[in-house]
Amino acid sequence: MSQIISHSYPGFNDIAIESAISAIRTGDFSGRQTMKLAESKLASFMGGAYSKLTNTGFAALQAALVAANVNCNDNVLIPTVTCPSVYHAVRSLGVTPIVVDVEKETPLISLEQAIRKKSTSGKNVVIIPQMFGLTQNVKPFFESDFLVIEDIAQRFSPTISQHVDLTVMSFSPTKLFTMGYGGGIVTRQEDYYARLSVFLDPDHSDHSYEREVPFRIHSPVSDYQCAMLISQLERYQEILSYRNKLVEKYDQELGYPARLQPEVPFRYQLILEHHSAKKISESLRESGIGAWALGSHLLHQLFEIEGDFENAEWWSNRVLSLPLHEKLTLDNICYISDVVRRYR
């Protein structure tokens, strides 16, 4: 095995490290002032919306659901192609999510399937993960009377639709940027922000009199986490520019293959003609290259959910995900491409 290349790598550089070190040297880990600054920077980055930070993306989704007053009488729909943590976050509030198929054209949640599974009682909530850096039009879901929670953990960008109620994100080590771990919620609606401010109060004391919101989420972030995030928001275009450069190199080396066309370059993902992604990914990992097939992330298989998931099944073993992160060099891309060509 001549090289070992990971599938993902935390998105940070020396600037982020120095920012974190500077925050640590203050000896104040409470995150009060730096958190306020980071939330302000994130809100500005997202176009002037309100924002709150959490210690994980999981907690961010929990908080969004609580802010939206989701309870066991409501209908929460999620696609089968998404991270299992989305399923577990919904379940943590005592709600069993309704898992639906994805589109035939893209591995994103199907509007048709979602409408078919709407309920006539309670709220109809849809969580729309913008998977793999792709962008799904959320307006049709909004116009179909869904409360829309958008998950941009894999397509972190400053564009938020006016048809989204709440937007959640993750800054875990596998994402575009990292705070070590971390998450965020963004909304344009002041009432949601007010509720978030109550139950995400890190001391659970400033708003202890708010009896109408008994639910609390303890998910504080530290000064050094927030300092890292601020430094990376300032480098956003630089980071994306380098990733796009790697995408161009992949295209050239692999002959402009059929692949997913994301708005944000989260991974480089080939669309294979045959059901061979799992086999090829295993062979690539044996060669020291982190690669994965989409099929290992289907919720209906993981949780043994019956139903029609024809489109997801089609996508499951045709998407081959290759490394794409800041630690990769152009030479790495040449090596990876050379190995991939042996199996195509």
Rank of each mutant, 00 (worst) to 15 (best):
V70C: 04
D223K: 14
S119M: 15
V125Q: 12
R116K: 13
F12C: 06
E105H: 13
H204N: 13
T82C: 07
K279H: 05
T56A: 14
A89Y: 11
G133C: 10
Q162S: 05
Q154Y: 07
I127K: 07
F45A: 14
V319Y: 02
Q261V: 07
W292P: 00
E313R: 01
N13A: 10
P220D: 02
S337F: 08
N73H: 14
D201S: 09
D308E: 14
G27R: 00
T34K: 13
S51F: 01
Y87F: 07
C72T: 10
L37H: 12
N13P: 01
V66F: 10
Y50I: 00
F146D: 10
Q162N: 11
F199L: 06
F141H: 15
Q62P: 00
A60P: 01
Q225I: 09
E273D: 11
A38Y: 10
R91H: 07
K123H: 05
H325I: 05
L272R: 04
R216Y: 04
I239S: 09
R344W: 07
K52G: 08
I128Q: 12
S161N: 03
L240E: 05
S208I: 15
E263I: 08
L200A: 09
S6Q: 06
A194V: 12
M228K: 15
F141T: 08
H275M: 09
M169V: 00
V138A: 06
N332W: 03
A63S: 15
C334G: 13
Q237C: 05
S6Y: 04
H275L: 08
M1L: 15
F58P: 02
G47K: 10
S92L: 06
G31W: 12
Q136S: 05
L320E: 02
R344E: 00
V81H: 13
F142I: 00
S321N: 07
L240N: 02
G307L: 09
I109A: 09
A49Q: 13
Y335L: 04
H88G: 01
A291S: 00
W292E: 09
G288A: 08
M131K: 09
L233T: 11
G307C: 07
F215G: 01
A277Q: 02
L254R: 12
G48D: 05
E304P: 01
F215P: 01
I127Q: 08
E190D: 05
N317A: 11
L284V: 02
R211K: 12
V76W: 06
N317Q: 13
G133L: 03
S205K: 10
S30T: 11
S276Q: 06
I4T: 09
I5S: 02
G184F: 04
M228Y: 15
A68T: 14
R91Q: 00
L93S: 11
K245M: 13
